[in-house]
Design a protein around this nucleic acid. Sequence first.
DNA 1: CCTCAGGTAAGAG
DNA 2: CTCTTACCTGAG
Length: 295
Amino acid sequence: MTGKWIPLGPKNAICLTGINESLVGGQSFSWTSQSENQWIGVVNGSLVQLRWVSGQLEWRTSANSRISEKEMLHYLWLDETYLEAVDSLPWRSDGILSRAINQFPGLRILRQPLDETLLVFLLSSAKSIPQIKQLKEKIYHLLGEEVGEGIHAFPGWNRLKKLTQLEARKLGTGYRAKFLVGTAEFLGENPNFLDDLRYIPYQEAKLRLMNLPGVGPKVADCVLLFGGEKPEAFPIDTWILQSLEKQYGMKAWKISQMEEFARIHFGKYAGLAQQFLFSYQRHFSKTEDAEWTKK
DNA sequence: CCTCAGGTAAGAG
DNA sequence: CTCTTACCTGAG
């Protein structure tokens, strides 16, 4: 990958902390940071490099790649609808959200492939971001096509279906092995299942996903938000739970009540709000808690 | 050696 | 429908 760097999207559309958090902050496991302002990853099967230089995002890809600029803009949500989405959030009345948005300017939801998103979040339970990435890469290395030096693409569920539970265990998936095998089998029997989700409303799509082994409410929401273009999905993980309990004072609230609050308070782009709050909580809660105990 | 982690499923109340 | 606990594995 030695081609020329090409500007991507308008200048100052995104800042360094925002793009870095979007790529390696935990919604995607496809990117590796190469330096402070440069990343390498796989987009729809193509090896891609991104870098951020004085307000401008730039990209390049391998010579044999067939990914287009249009696809990249879509993947990175680099169009005017992003600003509309952020503006639609209740930042005017919500100081907590407002603070989070200001800390990560330009943080966005990537439009990742649905099938791949399902796989990585199936692996995600009780694992940290580096562990999920490592586990995913082990599977890709075994089954996926090599698109760069040591970098493999998503193998697809057809190939994943060939994995036995024992083989999956050997890769270190642990109790997630039966989820993987069960989901692969289900998708083999229902080949249109994932494609159909695209035309199904969020709530119904979530219920359908939750029929898959290993997919509960949290994973279903992650899959729909990060891979299903359902921006109203609001995954409640431990970080968001902390944010709602500590920042929003919802200590005694039930999950179902929090979901209702999110739907009403954050609206159509609740998932985008979730991402801001998630990042803020993950990066700043420690220092904040430390200050709290000091006082 | 022990605890705990981007959660889910199963069983009980 | 809410609450508890086991489940693999590896990092701290």
